[in-house]
Design a protein around this nucleic acid. Structure first.
Length: 271
DNA sequence: ACGCCCTCCTGTTGGC
DNA sequence: TGCCAACAGGAGGGCG
């Protein structure tokens, strides 16, 4: 499931193949993604050179000479570097064909992904403008999380997954960060102490950084741009480990549902 | 402003 | 063994 580390891994994977290359064509095979891919997009991006690749939250930004492509991988999307002549498979929705003979091919079985093109400052695009600070930037720290959690009655797990407050943390890393911070997922956000929010801010950063280092988490079918899975699954402490012994204390990991999503935690390690 | 819930989609899993 | 319901999940959007 692409969360921030998987998107960053994808970005690093495509960057050496894409930057400096010219886009020969954008071939859209299935425009019905989360939002319909605009019919005029191929004409707008064809012929442009790729200047940079960036990431904002879980959005992958491909900066061109006259604008920026905003790609979201949704829950099941992947963007791979392939030879342009590679036959299409089911759920291959578009190709960004480069003048190198390679293509950036987007595959997404569930079609929760999206592709936008914007001219001007991409950070002012409606999808990006209201996002919270990057968790790996200095602005995301204990002070920020302290201000953010005050007076909030929502549970801390659900707060971590609200992209207006914290970005990049999805279901996997929310459970893992809370384990690392020794905080139970059902606690009200406002109930956390100064020490706990500081620990949690640090845990979010550490978990994301560790996952990036090993290419993200592959639970089922996520692969990076080179088709290689991520290895963070082997380092998960609680996620999808219900009924198995906690790696720290041996207590059986518990599972519960919050906002129609599974949460995992250790009742001994987390208070 | 906040919090809750629904929605999009399809492959996989579990229960009968 | 086969069928079908439930589940998984990112995050925008609507509603109270």
């Amino acid at each position: 499931m692409p969360e921030l580390p998987e998107v960053e891994t994808t970005r690093r994977g495509i960057e050496p193949h894409a930057v400096g290359r010219r886009i020969v064509a954008l071939a859209v095979h299935e425009p019905r993604l989360r939002w319909r891919v605009r019919d005029d997009m191929p004409g707008l991006v064809a012929g442009q050179r790729v200047l940079h690749t960036k990431r904002r939250a879980k959005y992958l930004l491909i900066e061109l000479e006259s604008g920026t492509l905003l790609l979201h991988l949704g829950m099941s999307g992947s963007l791979r570097v392939l030879p342009a002549e590679t036959p299409l498979l089911t759920h291959d929705h578009f190709d960004l064909v480069l003048d190198s003979g390679s293509t950036l091919r987007f595959n997404d079985p569930r079609r929760f992904g999206s592709l936008h093109y914007t001219t001007g400052d991409p950070h002012e695009h409606p999808l990006l403008a209201t996002l919270a600070p990057e968790p790996l930037d200095a602005a995301f720290n204990g002070d920020y999380l302290w201000r953010t959690t005050r007076r909030r009655r929502v549970t801390i797990k659900q707060l971590l997954m609200n992209s207006k407050l914290v970005v990049g943390v999805g279901n996997i890393y929310a459970s893992e960060a809370l384990f690392r911070a020794k905080v139970r997922p059902r606690r009200q956000a406002r109930s956390l102490s100064r020490v706990e929010v500081a620990r949690l801010a640090r845990a979010v950063r550490t978990v994301l950084a560790m996952a990036i280092r090993v290419g993200g988490t592959t639970l089922r079918d996520y692969v990076g741009a080179d088709g290689v899975p991520g290895y963070f699954k082997q380092k998960l402490h609680v996620y999808e480990r219900a009924g198995q012994p906690c790696r720290k204390c041996g207590t059986l990991v518990r599972q519960l549902t919050q906002g129609q999503r599974s949460t995992y935690y250790c009742p001994t390690c987390q208070k």
